[in-house]
Amino acid sequence: MSGNGNAAATAEENSPKMRVIRVGTRKSQLARIQTDSVVATLKASYPGLQFEIIAMSTTGDKILDTALSKIGEKSLFTKELEHALEKNEVDLVVHSLKDLPTVLPPGFTIGAICKRENPHDAVVFHPKFVGKTLETLPEKSVVGTSSLRRAAQLQRKFPHLEFRSIRGNLNTRLRKLDEQQEFSAIILATAGLQRMGWHNRVGQILHPEECMYAVGQGALGVEVRAKDQDILDLVGVLHDPETLLRCIAERAFLRHLEGGCSVPVAVHTAMKDGQLYLTGGVWSLDGSDSIQETMQATIHVPAQHEDGPEDDPQLVGITARNIPRGPQLAAQNLGISLANLLLSKGAKNILDVARQLNDAH
C-alpha cells in the first residue's frame, strides 16, 4: 500500500501541473516587456503551470559599433537563445518575429505568432524639431536608422535628408537623439515604442507609400524545439490566425527572394473581405531603383483552434497545428507568387547589386 502511495506522490510531482516552463529572452527592456506579455497570456491559459524567465545577451546586443547589415552573420539576435533551447536550458524563446530568419536551424520551429501590433515605422524627432515631419525637416538634416530597408525607401522619398546608421537598443538610440546634436530624427518601429509606453515620442507614423515595413514587423514569434510536442501544444494558444497568415505570406515572399538583413526588402499586408493583399518591394541601397507589386488571394481566416493538420510540417519556419492547413498554404503560395513576379521584373539584379555594395563598404 505504502509503495503505491509513493508512486502516486511521484506521479503528482512529475505531472504537468508541477512543471516549471523556462522562457528565454534577450536582456533589453523591450525584450523583457514583450516576454512578460507572452508569459502573462500563458499564465492565464495555464494557471497550474509556473513560468521562469531567463534573460541573456546576444551577438546583436554586444556589437554596437557596426551596422547590422555589415556584421555579416545571420541570427544576430537569436543564436545564443537557440543555443540555450538546444541544450534544454529553456523550453521556449520569445523573439520579435522580424529577427527570426525565414529558414531556422534544424530542430527549431516557430510554435506561435502572437497578435500583431502596429507594424509601421515611426519617426521620433529631436526636441528642437518636435512638430515637424520628415518632409518639413531642414535641408541636409541627419536621420538615424539601423535599417537598409528604411534608408533606401526614405532616401527616395525625401532626397533633402541624409540617413546615417544608429545602433543600440531603444533606450540607447533615444538617448543619442536627445543628448547629442548629430541626429534631427530617428526611425523606429511603432510597436516597440508603444510597448515601452513611449507613445508621446511618436512624431509621425510612416504610411506604406512612404515606407513599407519589415517582414514580420510588429509581431512576436515564440520559438521552440520542433519535436517538443508538449510545448508546441502549450504555445499553440498564442497563435493569432490573421497575423499568422499575413506573416506566412510575408516570410514566403522574403524567403523566395532570398532577402535578408543586408538587402532592402519591404512588405505591406492587409486582410479585407476574405482577401489577403500582399505588397512587396525591393530597392537599391540608395533607393534610386525599385520594383513594387501587389497581389491578392482569397483566404478564409479560420477561428482559433479549428482542428489543424496533425502532421505539422513547417511552413517558412512556422508550425501551427491548430490552424487549418489550406489557408496557410494559400498564404505561402501568395508570397511565392509575388516573389516570382518581382524576380521576373529584375528584382534579383537589384538585390545582387545591393548585396555587393553593402559587402564592399
Results as ranks from 00 to 15, higher is better:
E73F: 06
L343H: 14
E242T: 08
G317W: 12
S262V: 09
Q304I: 03
D240M: 04
L206Q: 03
A249G: 01
T66G: 12
T243F: 01
N169I: 04
P106T: 13
A214D: 06
G107W: 15
L338S: 12
Q194F: 01
K70D: 09
D240S: 01
K27V: 14
T279I: 13
N118T: 14
H256S: 12
K43H: 09
G107Y: 01
V123Q: 03
H120A: 05
C114A: 05
R201D: 12
E80T: 11
I186Q: 12
D233T: 08
Q356F: 03
P119D: 04
V90T: 07
V237R: 10
A122I: 04
A226F: 10
A252D: 01
L148Y: 01
D286Y: 04
T243N: 10
P159S: 09
S141M: 13
K132F: 14
Q153M: 07
D61P: 03
I63G: 11
P208K: 04
A347K: 01
V222F: 01
E162L: 12
T109Q: 07
K79V: 06
L42V: 07
N349I: 06
G197L: 04
G236T: 09
A151D: 12
T294C: 01
R225F: 05
H120L: 13
A152C: 10
V263R: 05
Q217L: 01
R325A: 09
E179V: 13
C261S: 01
G259C: 10
E73M: 08
I53E: 07
Q181C: 01
I54Y: 11
E223Q: 03
N333C: 01
R149N: 01
E86V: 09
N169R: 10
G346A: 05
P47V: 11
H160L: 10
E210H: 01
K70A: 09
G317S: 04
L64K: 13
N200L: 05
F51M: 09
G24D: 01
Q292A: 08
D273E: 11
F108T: 14
G216A: 04
H268V: 14
A189S: 08
V215P: 07
P47E: 01
K62T: 01
E258W: 03
I54E: 14
A31G: 08
S344P: 14
A297Q: 05
G111N: 01
N340P: 01
A189Y: 01
N358K: 15
L206H: 01
Q292L: 13
F158R: 09
L68R: 12
Y46M: 13
I33Q: 08
E209D: 09
A330T: 10
G346P: 01
W198I: 07
A189E: 03
I350M: 09
F163V: 13
G111A: 05
I187H: 01
A189K: 05
A67L: 09
D65F: 10
L92D: 01
F77V: 01
E293C: 07
D230T: 01
G168D: 01
G216S: 12
